[in-house]
C-alpha cells in the first residue's frame, strides 16, 4: 500500500508540474504552426507570472490577476509579432530579446514596486486560485485504489489545471476542425498559397501569436498564483525551453503535446521524489541526470532516432509578399 500511495503522490505532482509546460507547449503550438518560431515562451510566461501575481495582490482578486497576466503576455507576443511579422526580423533573435527584457524587467519593477527583493507580496486566500474539491472526494478517499485516484489525482486541483487539460482537445478542434485552424496551418506550411487565396498572412500570424500570448499568460499565472503564492524572480527556470522541447517531442500535435508534457512533468516529479533513494537495477540516480533527461531525449529525437520531427515548412521564414 505504501508503494501505491507513493505512486499516487508522484502522479499527483506530475500533473501539477506538467500544467505550466502544457500551457506553454500549446501556446508554442499556435505560433509554430503558423510559421513563427517562438523561443520567447519562457519570457512571456515570466511576465505573465509577474503581472498576475502583482495585479492579484494589488487588486485583491485572482481574476484580475489572471486578466493582467494574459494582457501583458499578449503585449509581449505582439512585440514579437511586430519584429518578426511586420519588420521581418529574425524570429530567434526577437525571441531571445523578449526573454531578456522579461527577465530583467520583472526583477527591476518588482523591486521598485514591492521592495521585497524582486518578489511580489505573498498572495492571500482569494487572491490566488484555490483547489476545487470534487463532490464526494473526501468520502471516497478510503475506497481502495479508486478512492485515492479520485481524491488525489482527479479532484483537488485549481481551475487552471482543468483549463490546461481542456485546452488540449480544444486546440485540436481549433487547428484541425475549423477554418481558422486550416488557414493557420496553411500559413505555416505555404504562406504564398494563403496569400493567393486573398487571406492576409500577417493578420493570421498575428492572431496565432495572440493565442500564444493568451496561453503563456495562463501558464505564468499558474506558476505564480497556483503553484507558488506569489512571484519569485526567474521562477520559470527554463520551463519555457522544456515546453519548446516538448513541442518538438510532440511533433507539433496537441494530443502528443499533452503526453510529452506529462512525461517531462513525470521526470521532474520523479527526480524530486527519488532524491537520494536507490532504485532497483540502476542504483542511485543523480538528480542532475533526471533533470537533464528531457533535454537529452529531445536531442535524441531531433537526431531522428525516435521517429522524425518535421517542423512546419515555413517556420522561421518571414513572409515577403511578391510584387
Amino acid at each position: 500500500m505504501d508503494i501505491f500511495n507513493a505512486i499516487i503522490q508522484v502522479l499527483d505532482s506530475t500533473i501539477r508540474l506538467s500544467v505550466p509546460l502544457l500551457l506553454a507547449c500549446l501556446a508554442g503550438l499556435y505560433s509554430e504552426r503558423a510559421g513563427i518560431f517562438d523561443i520567447g515562451l519562457e519570457g512571456k510566461m515570466l511576465v505573465g507570472a509577474f503581472a498576475g501575481a502583482a495585479a492579484a495582490s494589488v487588486f485583491h482578486s485572482a481574476l484580475i490577476g489572471l486578466g493582467m497576466a494574459v494582457l501583458i503576455s499578449v503585449a509581449f507576443a505582439l512585440v514579437h509579432g511586430f519584429a518578426s511579422i511586420t519588420h521581418r526580423g529574425n524570429q530567434i533573435v526577437s525571441g531571445v530579446a523578449i526573454n531578456f527584457v522579461a527577465a530583467g524587467s520583472t526583477i527591476i519593477l518588482g523591486q521598485a514596486w514591492f521592495q521585497q527583493g524582486g518578489r511580489t507580496p505573498a498572495l492571500q486566500p482569494g487572491e490566488r486560485f484555490e483547489a476545487i474539491i470534487w463532490p464526494g472526494a473526501d468520502a471516497a478517499r478510503d475506497v481502495p485504489i479508486i478512492g485515492p485516484i479520485y481524491a488525489e489525482l482527479i479532484s483537488g486541483h485549481s481551475i487552471l489545471v482543468y483549463f490546461a487539460f481542456a485546452m488540449v482537445p480544444f486546440t485540436w478542434w481549433v487547428l484541425f476542425r475549423t477554418r481558422f485552424g486550416l488557414r493557420l496551418r496553411a500559413v505555416g506550411e505555404n504562406p504564398a498559397a494563403v496569400d493567393t487565396a486573398g487571406i492576409s498572412v500577417a493578420w493570421l500570424r498575428y492572431r496565432a501569436l495572440i493565442c500564444t500570448g493568451i496561453l503563456t499568460g495562463f501558464a505564468g499565472a499558474y506558476l505564480s498564483m497556483v503553484q507558488n503564492g506569489g512571484f519569485v524572480k526567474d521562477m520559470t527556470a527554463g520551463k519555457g525551453y522544456i515546453a519548446l522541447a516538448a513541442l518538438i517531442f510532440a511533433k507539433w500535435k496537441p494530443v502528443n503535446a499533452m503526453f510529452a508534457c506529462l512525461l517531462f512533468g513525470f521526470l521532474d516529479a520523479a527526480s524530486i521524489r527519488l532524491q537520494g533513494t536507490p532504485l532497483p537495477i540502476v542504483g542511485k540516480v543523480s538528480v542532475q541526470f533526471m533533470q537533464a533527461l528531457p533535454y537529452v531525449l529531445t536531442v535524441i529525437l531531433l537526431a531522428g532516432f525516435i521517429g522524425k520531427a518535421i517542423p512546419p515548412r515555413a517556420g522561421g521564414v518571414p513572409y515577403v509578399k511578391e510584387r
Binding site: 530579446a97 526573454n99 530583467g104 527591476i108
Partner: peptide, 19 residues
C-alpha cells in the same frame, strides 16, 4: 538586472528590428 533589460533591448532593436 537593469543590464539584462538593456541587453534585451539591444538585441531587439539592433537585431530583430534592425530594419
Amino acid at each position: 538586472d537593469m543590464i539584462v533589460i538593456i541587453q534585451g533591448l539591444v538585441i531587439l532593436f539592433a537585431g530583430a528590428l534592425e530594419h
